[in-house]
Amino acid sequence: MTSLGIVGYGAYVPRFRISVEEIARVWGEDAETIKNGLGVQEKSVPDKDEDTITIAVEAGKNALARAGISPRTVGALYVGSESHPYAVKPSGTVVGEALDLGTDLMVADFEFACKAGTAAMQCCYGLVKAGVIDYGLAIGADTSQGRPGDMLEYTASAGGAAFVIGKDPLAELETTCSYTTDTSDFWRREGADYPSHGARFTGKPAYFHHVTQATQLLLGKLGLKPADFTAAVFHMPNGKFPTAAAAGLGFTPAQLERSLVVRRIGNTYSGSSLLGLTNVLDAAKPGDRILLTSYGSGAGSDAFSFLVTDRIIERRDKAPATEAYIQDKQHIDYGTYVRLRRKLKV
C-alpha cells in the first residue's frame, strides 16, 4: 500500500510577546506563582493587521514550500479555528485564493475549540486515502482571547501550523482515531467576546480524560507502547497539563521536551499541538515515530502516529523553522496589548 502522510508542514507565530510578569503587574497578581502554576513564561500577540486568515496563509505558504508541489494540485483546504474573522464567510475562501490553490478545490472551515486543525488533518487524510484528491491542506490557526483578569489571559495567544497531506510523505501517518463526548468545560456563545470555562472542571473529566482515552485507543490499534515513540506531542493549554498527561500515560519528560513550545508562546489554540509537532519535525530523523494527541473543549481528542521518512532531510530547510518564529520577537506592555487585541471599546 502506498505510504500517505505529511508531505510538507509550515509554522507561523506573530512577533509580539507579552510576559506573565507584565500581565500580573496590571492585575496585582504574583507573577512567579502564576508562572510556576501554568508553566508559561510569555505568550504571542498578533499585530493589529493579523488574524486567523493571515496566520493561516503564512503557515500555508511554508507548508507548500516544504512539500515542493504546485499549489494547484491541492484538492481540499480545511481551516480549523475558534477565531475565524467572519461569522459567515469561510476563512478558507481567502486562504485558498491567497495561496493560489485554484478553483477545483473543496473548502470548509472547521471549529472544534483547540482541535479543529487536527480534525482538518483527519479529513484530508481520508480524502487522499480514498483517492478523491492528490493533496489536502489542513491548517489550524487562532488569535484566541482571554477575558481581562481571567487566568486564560496569561496563555491565550496566536499562531498556526499547516500540513500538506498526500503521497510520498516526510512523515507517514500510521493511523489516527478520536475520542469524543459531550463535556462542557469551555465554550463561547455566538456574539460573546470572550469564552467561559469551568475552571478546575477543564482538567480531570475534560483534558486528561479525553487525551488519555484517545492516546490509549491509538496505542491499542497499533499494538504499540509509549517506549516505541521517539517523541510525543499533546495539546498545550499550559505547560503543566501536557506534562502531567504524558507522565500518566507512561511517556518520559525527554519524549515530550521538544514539543513544549507553550512555555514561550502560550496556548495558540487550534495551532497549539500542531506547533508542537512542527517543532518536533524540525529536529526529527528518518525512522523516528511521533505521537500527536490534540484536545478540543466540548470535548474531544484526535490521536495520530507518524513515522518519519528520509524525505524529511531534503524538505526540512525549504521554509523557516518553528524556532526561528519563536525567537524573532518583540516584547510589548499591557497598554499596547490592550490596543492590539481591541480590548478597549471606544
Partner: peptide, 9 residues
C-alpha cells in the same frame, strides 16, 4: 530588505 507578508489591508 523586505519580504512580502499577507495581512489585513
Amino acid at each position: 530588505r523586505v519580504r512580502p507578508v499577507f495581512r489585513r489591508i
